[in-house]
Nucleic acid binder design. Structure first.
Ligand SMILES: [Mn+2]
Ligand SMILES: [Mn+2]
Ligand SMILES: [Mn+2]
Ligand SMILES: [Mn+2]
Lengths: 216, 216
DNA sequence: TTATATTTTTAGACAAGCCTAAAAAATTTA
DNA sequence: TAAATTTTTTAGGCTTGTCTAAAAATATAA
């Protein structure tokens, strides 16, 4: 249906669209670690295929078709991540690169059967919602720890940074999906956040607090 | 490690090497549904990478390295086929094309975990042996039904033709892996073979008998 | 053993996807 | 508003993997 490169561009544009309506050439280049001139080439091709809305110098947005394709790729990615963690017992910091390849396996029948095999999971190992076979999913109503008031209590439910090093750090601290925490104090000097978890205190940096999401 | 195209060429050369020591350019072209000139281009590249032994006009054979790579791709292909049939309940005639894509997922750790998850199966859904993580596997000691004597008794254990139409035909006749049959008679007029299975007689054509393998 | 047919390779071209360098457009700063 | 900076596009080129057409090598037949 679509080439691997096209799929990766659509996914990148989708991801960037969540932050700002219109996505710029340079943003896409940064996201895909490629050059702006390469992006321009691909944008023309995606526009020809009616997958994006594109006028020169004006940035891009996904068409309805383009968005459907992008959501489907995300569905595949997150289902494979779930498979790798739940069935093959990989750790949550080990699965992203493998899923980057697996998301391009083209059969939708395969993905639907995989979904059924695993019991139609709704969240991937990082807390991100898994679109169903019609592309529907609940939008995450999560807040960064750095964005809630002191004495707020919540459940760790997602991350903003998916890097191995961040995920490994969280694992080590026991800050994993599903854990219940209370924000106890924000130290004014450097915005270090003091948390309580299992009746024990824990300090995390501003950076970590920015990238760790809780459901209230 | 290797490109998708390189992997497909190595697999094709491996497959053809089972029939004849030296593999010709045209044989590879036919196997991959490509042109002889494209094959020549690729052969030079594979020779440069020391994956094949190649002298112009002399045909090719795999080096030890090349064979290792080829066997590994076959291992991946067959493990994914097993997964698709045993875990996702696809039929044996539906899995080949999907496995053609999945065999190129590069992580060996993934394949080893998949192998473990499924209990280290030794045969794929078509009866072909699955190499273990060191590349070892039992060579099939099977005979085509057309090649055994009347009154021979055996277990259906493999196929030579992997096409959907052939596999669907076998399924319909109940001629599936593991079934016990006896060769009752070969009709001299057109070499139709009369089988007995579950105390019932069944006639198959010469063509079918050529492509259906039994263990004695 | 020479002529013919087949197989294989070479030559040249093309699409996809990427690059660098330069030009054009848009934005920011003065 | 004009100049400087940044962003985006264009121009031209490279690699991979493919193709067709023609040349070269090998195999077969007379
Ligand atoms: Mn991921
Ligand atoms: Mn994820
Ligand atoms: Mn197969
Ligand atoms: Mn098979």
């Amino acid at each position: 249906m679509h080439t691997l490169a096209e799929e990766n561009y659509l996914k990148a544009i989708y991801k960037l669209s969540l932050i700002a309506e219109n996505v710029s050439t340079n943003q896409i280049a940064a996201e895909l670690a490629t050059k702006a001139s390469s992006v321009t080439d691909m944008l023309r091709k995606l526009a020809d295929k009616l997958l994006i809305n594109y006028t020169r110098y004006q940035g891009v947005s996904l068409t309805q078709t383009g968005e459907k394709v992008a959501v489907n790729i995300i569905r595949r990615h997150r289902l494979w991540e779930y498979f790798l963690v739940e069935k093959l017992h990989f750790k949550w910091d080990e699965v992203h690169e493998m899923a980057e390849e697996m998301e391009h396996i083209s059969s939708n029948e395969l993905i639907d059967r995989l979904d059924e095999f695993m019991g139609f999971p709704t969240r991937d190992p990082h807390g991100d919602p898994i679109p169903d076979c019609n592309g529907n999913f609940k939008t995450n109503d999560l807040k960064a720890i750095s964005a809630v008031d002191v004495n707020t209590c919540g459940i760790i439910s997602g991350v903003r940074d998916h890097s191995s090093s961040f995920l490994q750090y969280l694992e080590k601290q026991g800050l994993t999906i599903g854990k219940k925490i209370t924000i106890k104090e924000i130290i004014t000097y450097d915005n270090t956040v003091v948390l309580q978890m299992n009746n024990k205190d824990l300090q995390i940096s501003r950076d970590v607090a920015n990238n760790l999401l809780i459901a209230l």
